[in-house]
Design a protein around this nucleic acid. Structure first.
Lengths: 244, 244
DNA sequence: TCAAAAGTGTTGTCGATACACCCATGG
DNA sequence: CCATGGGTGTATCGACAACACTTTTGA
């Protein structure tokens, strides 16, 4: 068999929505190279292990699935990265995986990490290896997927309100959406949301209904990001603060 | 460095439109394993070679770019496949690449292939390795990309008519599109098509104008496949034949 | 003059936006 | 009863499907 040999790793872009902002799970490296720097969680593919199995195993370790915390979410392959000089240890190919998980308590470091934390996706410093690139690709994929799939619900807990779902879109797209039109769009899309009998009490205003995820995976017609309207929230939010 | 080692290969899903059908470039294997069976072209990643470089090199070899034939087209990474038992020789990770090329003469086998040929994508027998899966992923990606990008033009030669472009959509989607509405859509999308002064003479009917590709890469709003309308051509074509 | 293919005009429909308005709760 | 947020009704607009119609060629 011709060709030289590679070590094969999986790196995870684990996204969640916290405090109405999109966050990514990063680990502080506990070993060389890039000791002490922040990086995407990941690990090498074990013998007889398939890529998605490695990704799922590491995702569970990092998000504390072993602690009984139910992580539903979503996991899909993103792309592979194999520039010859991307790892000083030698030739390493990394397969990026993209995960969407509901908001959860602070993560517990898994693997060989010194620490782990949720970072706002636009507030990370330079990351180890080529992980800036992998992160950027993951965020872009996430933005696109919300347009034509129902995967936004993967960021939500088992039961959630329409407003919860809207905040996912707003955080991922960094845009503001009309709550009334959004409500109609998602509730009228067959199979996106399954209503429950429950209401959320205790908040201000009229109590919202609770929904579960439906069977639909595709969104027809899609919810398109208007390219002229994206990023409205960046300017709208300060204006709102000034008025309050 | 933990983890076992992999050989890393690139496999190409090279698509083109011939005789109004979507075709894929396959090679007949000239060595074991799967000697004599049909497979996607590919090759191992060389030392100091990046993935896209391997893919571009093999694409040029298979499509005869070295013969002076201008291959413009499009090349993008598709996904990686690394099931432990996918190659009987040992642990091999394959990175799939998707290529769109204009129609061209019969290919000349490159690498270690015994033969190579264009096959209709829905007429291939079972392929070697897990290449059926890679091919299916590539075709699905191609269908999706035509919706929201201008990549259909990558299947066309440097100058082409609106009808040429429509036949690309019809072949990839296996659907029939209204020529008049299609014309308006693509000619009114800023930057998709650049008109030339030339007309195509010699055919029946009014001579069509020739266009070149424009700078636009995205299609806003997208040209959506109506899920209810797909596959019309499968029934429409025989009807047309019966009438002709 | 006819057939064939390119290209334009027009109309109905559907979905999205924008926004007026009502509903249901906590203070 | 007022503020707050959930949710509905509706006018308008833009894009697209459908299809009548005109244009320009070869036979």
């Amino acid at each position: 068999m011709r060709g030289n040999l590679f070590a094969v790793a999986v790196n995870l872009v684990v996204l969640t929505v916290r405090a109405e902002r999109l966050h990514v799970l990063l680990i502080e490296r506990g070993e060389r190279p890039f000791l002490g720097e922040w990086a995407l969680p990941g690990g090498f593919v074990r013998p007889d292990e398939d890529l998605v199995h490695t990704a799922g195993r590491r995702l569970g370790e990092e998000t504390g699935a072993d602690t009984g915390h139910a992580v539903v979410g979503h996991l899909e392959q993103l792309a592979s990265y194999a520039a010859p000089d991307r790892d000083p240890r030698g030739r390493v190919l990394s397969v990026g995986y993209l995960a969407f998980v509901p908001d959860m308590p602070e993560p517990t470091p898994g693997g060989s990490a010194a620490a782990s934390a949720w970072w706002p996706v636009d507030g990370t410093g330079p990351l180890a290896f080529d992980h800036d690139r992998i992160l950027a690709d993951g965020v872009e994929r996430a933005k696109a997927k919300l347009e034509y799939t129902t995967l936004a619900a993967s960021f939500c807990p088992a039961e959630f309100t329409v407003t919860d779902l809207r905040r996912v879109y707003e955080a991922v797209w960094d845009a503001s959406l009309d709550p009334r039109n959004f409500q109609r769009k998602v509730t009228s899309t067959e199979g996106f949301l399954v209503p429950t009998a429950a209401l959320v009490t205790g908040g201000r205003g009229r109590p919202p209904r609770l929904f579960r995820r439906g069977d639909a995976t595709a969104l027809h017609p899609p919810m398109l990001r208007d390219p002229h309207r994206v990023n409205d929230r960046a300017t709208a939010a300060p204006r709102h603060d000034a008025l309050g």
